[in-house]
Design a protein around this nucleic acid. Sequence first.
DNA 1: ATGTCGATTGCGAATCGA
Length: 262
Amino acid sequence: MRIATFNINGIKARLPRLIEWLEETRPTVACLQEIKSQDDGFPADEFEKIGYHAIWHGQKSFNGVAILADGVKPEETQRGLGVDGPKEGEGEQARYLEAHVNGVRIACLYLPNGNPHPGPKFDYKLAWMEKLRARMRELWQSEQPTIVTGDFNVIPHDDDVWSPKAMQDDALMQPESRDAYQRQLADGWTDAVRTLNPRGGVWTFWDYQRGAWQRDHGFRIDHCLLSPELADRLTAVGVDKDYRGREKASDHTPVWVELADG
DNA sequence: ATGTCGATTGCGAATCGA
């Protein structure tokens, strides 16, 4: 089976491109982030038409995550991590959704960006990562085949970015962000893209600004973390880079892992 | 030199978030 993650940056603006990608690459499971849609605006019918069943966790204007599966309805196991947003009285943002699909536990996340650093948004990012770590420990201990995937908004190493110097003040590569990410790996999770590309140089995001795509000024922030049960089944990873260059593209590309049958 | 997008408000163009 192939499990993909794709920060689509707006499901309404991206729908034709998203349908095109699903039909052309046909992932078994697709985890989406930044749907930027409320629950009742989610275009589930459009996915049903091409054979995908979905669950989603929406929010007005920003954030929002969804899990699509080919021919089977994802069985939701959790939504949210119980972290209030950075503004007073804001409540929780829609950033985490978890389900069972075909015997695999799927966690789809959109981790807070954290800019500007330092500040309340960065503090929120770190608090969110602490809650995520706690949930991932529970998942790990369940000993089920599990993937935690999505937009982590963390550049793990200097060779995961076109210019560490240009990005040095960004929340995506602060030592605190990186340390929190590395703690997840130390808990026993496998960064699938890193494992099969140990020298780095793989980008999953190119900014809309400053001609970043044309100059190949990108970095890697969309990750697939595998539990030991799934890491043993990993056969390939990929970035569907072609989609970044198309009309009305997201600023992220899809990233996927191929897993042998369990 | 925040140089581009998407959503929202509310019907043009500003604001916010990334």
